[in-house]
Structures are given as C-alpha cells and as structure tokens.
C-alpha cells in the first residue's frame, strides 16, 4: 500500500518547491485513470523513504509542469502528455506528442478519455 495525500492542481508547483528545498530527489510521476478523471501521483525520495502526493485532473484542465523546478520531470511529463493526453503547461522542452510516437503512429489507447488528438490533421493518416 502506498501513502499519498491529495493536493489541488494549482498547488503542485508549491508542493514540488517544498520537496526541492528540503533535499528530496525526484523519482517519477505516475498517471492513471480513475472515474473519468486522471490521477497523477508524484513520487519523491529522501534517504530511501518515498513521499507521494497526487492530484486529480479533469480532462480539460491544464497541469502546471514541475520541469522548471525538477529538470528530471521533463521526460516523464512529456510521456504522460503523449500517452494519456493530459496537457502540461510551462514544460522545459515540449515534444508536442512526438517523444515516443511518430507522426503516423496510432493514438495511444492508454486512456479511454480522449482529449488530445494530435493537432496535425493534415499529416495524420
């Protein structure tokens, strides 16, 4: 079982800053789908102890990226954006959904909620 506390979407950056200032290492973010919403679990580590917090995101909502605080979050946030379609704002480098999947790849079926079709209609088959 994992311990995780819920925070609001606009508190993400504040929380991440708190962990950064207290010497926590970024481990990863995990995205899953729960009752028509996305749940993103943020995991940090200090001295082998994991700390988690999670947010619930509505499909239409934009999530503030923590990649400006923890550079390491860059890839995982791009991955979530691509495979689940959750939109992140303020990404350090935005791959625009082309990190893992090519222009002609199928849309990832990882999430049943469809929000982000890649906006490259003319290139898509």
């Amino acid at each position: 079982m994992i311990n995780s506390r819920e925070v609001k979407v606009d508190e993400i950056e504040k929380e991440a800053k708190y962990y950064y200032d207290n010497g926590y290492r970024f481990v990863t973010e995990t995205c899953l789908e729960e009752d028509g919403k996305f749940k993103i679990i943020y995991t940090f580590e200090r001295e082998y102890e994991l700390e988690n917090f999670h947010v619930y995101v509505n499909p239409a909502e934009e999530v503030p990226s923590i990649s400006k605080i923890y550079f390491a979050a860059l890839l995982v946030e791009n991955e979530i954006q691509e495979l689940f379609g959750v939109k992140f704002k303020n990404l350090a480098i935005d791959f625009e959904g082309l990190l893992f999947l090519g222009e002609y790849s199928p849309i990832s079926p990882q999430a049943s909620i469809e929000i982000m079709r890649r906006d490259k209609g003319d290139k898509n088959e």
Partner: peptide, 27 residues
C-alpha cells in the same frame, strides 16, 4: 527501477507503471 502496480481485483492488473533507470538518467 521503479514499479507501480494497481489492481482492483481479478486476474489482470489495472495499471503497471515502470520507471526504468535509463529514463531517470537521461536528464
């Protein structure tokens, strides 16, 4: 390597998430 699994019963897992070491080292 980081494994996250979630199940809600039954034979199949709901979600498997793997954060591999290279993924962490790329930054």
């Amino acid at each position: 390597v980081f494994y996250y699994i979630k199940s809600s019963g039954g034979k199949n897992l709901d979600r498997l998430r793997i954060r591999t070491p290279t993924f962490a080292n790329l930054a």
